[in-house]
Design a protein around this nucleic acid. Sequence first.
DNA 1: CCACATCTGTAGTGAACACTACATATCTGG
DNA 2: CCAGATATGTAGTGTTCACTACAGATGTGG
Lengths: 201, 201
Amino acid sequence: MGMGRPREFDAELALDQAMEVFWRHGYEGATIAQLTEAMGINPPSLYACFGNKEGLLKAALDRYTKLRGAWMDEVVAAPTAREVAERMLMGIADKQTDPANPPGCLLVQGGIACGSGSENVPFELAARRAQNEDQLRDRFIRAKAEGDLKESADPAALARYVSAVSVGMGVMASSGADREALRQVADVAVQAVEAQSADRT
Amino acid sequence: MGMGRPREFDAELALDQAMEVFWRHGYEGATIAQLTEAMGINPPSLYACFGNKEGLLKAALDRYTKLRGAWMDEVVAAPTAREVAERMLMGIADKQTDPANPPGCLLVQGGIACGSGSENVPFELAARRAQNEDQLRDRFIRAKAEGDLKESADPAALARYVSAVSVGMGVMASSGADREALRQVADVAVQAVEAQSADRT
DNA sequence: CCACATCTGTAGTGAACACTACATATCTGG
DNA sequence: CCAGATATGTAGTGTTCACTACAGATGTGG
């Protein structure tokens, strides 16, 4: 039995294009026509490969988080909680204003609120954001164990805080804030983590 | 010449219902059918009164910002920059988890990214968020002039920071964060403003 | 009571949407 | 070279969308 006609397009390359459309217009704002045109394929190819629109989004999210995963590993590899926050927020200021991508963060732009029938799209995005928060929380737990954070510090609250600032910066980037403005926000935000850090003796 | 048949519904009451639909589903996710049902009117009444869907959104946003305006005035009336930030963020933690409203903030849930044809909806929301930021900035400028903030403090950056944290908290609220979680974020966030405050002598 | 103006409910309108049937093309295994 | 399997392009499908034509209802000014 044969294996059938091979795919004529590169799925990962097509995903990159789809990712950008979702990023710019959100899940509901992105149409199949826009997606297929950006991907350089026709609707039947899209549905054969990804199932449906939501399947395509999930595949794009997988690719997005995979690409960002390596960077997050670098972030949590910073030696102190303060530097973790700094790397994270400064890096986000740069990434979210990188002209190579749409402004903001796909995990926010993708869709915060959706209409009936797409209710789990916001859930899906929230789950991916929570992964980053968990990674930060684990890192801050370690920082506290190492005496890098004060005894009174709450690692989960700190992680949630850094995550919240990231999201807020993303929304600002998508509505026109430039890199310098975001860096100033990051700079202020880091001081809260600094305040939770143990004194250097 | 006569004045015509009078309107049979209360426009402000209807706006409150429309506001909630936009809040929960976003601009694109909200359908005219949902809106008219929630408002208790038929489509022709909606279009006669508000022009079109986008006109209805703007009217709802006007009402939203008007309702919040009084509260923002209380916020900036706090005696110090630190207390302004604390009132703002703690109040937001409570408001965004108030079961009387959908979770989060209408100025975010309304629509961060939109499809072609609704591009100015995100602009409209961003403009309203910027108003709050401006109000905070002016307050922090005063705080600096009063010696309440350090000489090195940047009032515009601080206002942008508080605004970013607010937005981030809103997104978290809409994805299930409870009041206590948001209060912890607010608590950490305030410490950055504290770090920018002049020492009490 | 009549001319006029505005609102309301019914019942649609064309357009855009996500998605697919089908014929054709291109592969593998025998 | 043939049979089975999968991909592709064309051209749609039914549904849902924002929006409206129209006729009847309800008001005001003369």
